[in-house]
């Protein structure tokens, strides 16, 4: 009688424990853009857990219980790297007890390792704010970053799941073809945006500016990661008043107050860009993310 109860309890526990699909590849992506890229390159059966949404600051996330569980079950961790996730990814990896995804293993993929990084600081000191010694980590808004990371990521997926490597190769080719076509279309549109003068809350759009030749005339955060003070904003207002930029751009997760203050006084619009997948309703994949970003900027370009 007692053993029956025990068996029932164990069975119940097993149901609660809900074992995950053992055959399909399980991928943990730190940011939505890498989740989307994995979705393009891996099969539909691949399970993708994305740690952040477009509305969450990837710098300040905590090693939440659900994320520890997800990393524990992952075959592959796909993150930005370049210290973007320095506050929480190392802790997740340490806590998860999963040797397959530790730094330097095949199951650990850091996208920033494969692209050209800009804004590599010459002075690395906390008095400069939360600077990233390896350069600006917000790499995903340059189409070339995506294309290069896609090559490397497909390679990694096929190493991890070699029985399906032909599938990864053909999905990569299909993706790169479409990405190339899309870039040709975007190339026609970006001429109009060249030299567009903008202020930005944080250096979140440096790669986008690099691609589009935008002129980021001011960053509201005088030092990365440090909220701008009233005095700093006042100085900025004074500097920008003679020749105000077209607008102030920011991500969905950044504090709206400083850009609201500045845009109000300069009488210029606040422009919230999707920044990543899910940042606007229509930014549902990498293609629409870029399209939406261009579309919003085009609205304000003369």
């Amino acid at each position: 009688m007692r053993s029956k109860t025990l068996i029932r309890i164990i069975a119940l526990l097993l149901i609660l424990v809900s074992p995950l699909n053992a055959n399909a590849l399980s991928v943990f992506a730190c940011e939505p853009e890498w989740g989307a890229l994995v979705a393009e390159l891996a099969g539909e059966e691949t399970e993708i857990t994305i740690a952040t949404t477009a509305f969450q600051d990837p710098h300040s996330l905590q090693a939440r219980p659900s994320l520890i569980a997800a990393v524990r079950n992952a075959d592959l961790v796909v993150c930005t790297g370049a210290d973007l996730e320095i506050g929480w990814l190392p802790l997740l990896l340490r806590r998860a007890g999963n040797p397959a995804v530790q730094l330097g293993t095949q199951g650990n993929f850091l996208a920033a390792n494969y692209v050209r990084r800009i804004e590599i600081p010459k002075t690395i000191d906390r008095s400069q704010g939360d600077v990233h010694p390896q350069g600006n980590p917000h790499i995903h808004l340059h189409p070339r970053s995506i294309s290069r990371v896609a090559d490397e990521l497909a390679e990694r997926l096929s190493q991890l799941d070699s029985s399906n490597s032909a599938d990864y190769a053909s999905r990569l080719e299909y993706f790169q073809h479409r990405w190339d076509e899309a870039q040709s279309v975007w190339d026609e549109r970006i001429g109009k945006l060249k030299g567009m003068r903008l202020a930005s809350h944080h250096r979140s759009f440096s790669y986008l500016a690099d691609w589009l030749d935008l002129d980021i005339v001011a960053t509201l955060e005088a030092k990365p990661g440090i909220p701008p003070s009233g005095a700093q904003l006042a100085t900025l207002l004074e500097q920008l008043t003679p020749n105000p930029p077209v607008g102030v751009i920011r991500t969905p997760y950044e504090n709206e107050k400083p850009s609201a203050w500045l845009s109000d006084r300069l009488d210029i619009p606040q422009i919230q860009l999707p920044f990543t997948i899910g940042g606007t309703d229509k930014a549902v994949d990498l293609f629409s993310l870029y399209d939406q970003t261009l579309r919003i900027l085009e609205e304000y370009a003369n």
Binding site: V17, P19, L20, S66, I68, A69, A70, R72, N73, R95
Partner: peptide
Amino acid sequence: RWIAPTKLLF
């Protein structure tokens, strides 16, 4: 310590 292979952290 052991972490169960679940979606919730156990």
